[in-house]
Simulated assay, not measured.
Amino acid sequence: MRSQATEVELNTANLQLEGFIMAVAALSDMLVAKGVVTHQELSAALGQAERAVEQDDEHDLSDSNRAATLFPIRVLLLANEASQRGKKFAFSDYAELVGRLT
């Protein structure tokens, strides 16, 4: 059984991850707006990261650990797609979409 302190730490870590992912999405938008990269280039880079995790046989990840590793990449892919269409969503919307798509 987990202690309350452990649950609080997990929740804090989750919130930190959410904040970090949304910060990276905002930075990605800024880089596109400044013409440093395109949405297509971001999508290609994130797709490459996604494939690398999916094809990684060296680390013997369980399915749930692999899904956890892929989660932030997939959120960023969705955020990039939304931004390309001129839309932005909350982290919870992206998380729900990732859940439905995987």
Rank of each mutant, 00 (worst) to 15 (best):
F71W: 05
V98I: 14
A45E: 04
A45P: 00
S28Y: 00
A95C: 12
L42F: 04
V75R: 01
H39Y: 15
A45I: 03
V8Q: 10
V8P: 03
D93I: 01
T38M: 08
A13D: 08
N14R: 12
A5I: 11
D93Y: 03
L61I: 02
G19K: 10
L31Q: 02
E96C: 09
A44M: 10
V53S: 03
Q48F: 10
A82C: 12
T69P: 08
K34V: 03
Q40R: 14
V24T: 01
K87D: 04
L97R: 11
L15S: 13
V32W: 01
E81I: 02
K88H: 12
Y94H: 00
A23H: 07
A79P: 05
Q55I: 09
S28G: 12
L42S: 07
S83A: 15
V32R: 05
V37D: 00
L31E: 02
K88A: 15
D57G: 15
A23M: 11
D63H: 14
V32Q: 03
N80D: 09
A79T: 01
A68N: 08
V37M: 10
A49V: 00
V75C: 10
R66W: 02
I21T: 04
G35Y: 03
Q40T: 05
G47Q: 07
L10M: 06
G86P: 03
M30Q: 03
D29R: 09
F91C: 03
A44Q: 05
N80V: 13
V53L: 11
E81N: 10
L77G: 11
D57K: 13
T69I: 11
A25H: 01
L42A: 06
Q16R: 12
F89S: 06
A13H: 12
E96H: 09
L31N: 00
E81T: 06
Q55M: 15
N11K: 12
L31Y: 00
H59I: 14
L27R: 06
A49C: 06
L70T: 10
G86W: 02
E58W: 12
L76V: 01
E41L: 13
L46R: 00
N65E: 09
E9F: 14
Q16S: 10
D57C: 15
A23Q: 08
A90T: 00
F20K: 04
Y94T: 00
E41I: 07
F89R: 07
G86L: 02
V98N: 12
F20W: 05
G99I: 04
E50A: 12
L17W: 04
D63K: 15
L97S: 08
N65H: 09
E96Y: 10
V36K: 03
L97E: 06
A26L: 13
R66S: 03
R100V: 09
P72K: 05
T69F: 13
R2H: 09
E96R: 09
Q84D: 07
T6W: 03
A52Q: 04
L77E: 06
K87V: 06
T38H: 04
G99E: 04
L97G: 05
H59A: 15
T69E: 11
S83K: 04
I73V: 14
A67M: 14
T69Q: 12
E58I: 08
F20Q: 06
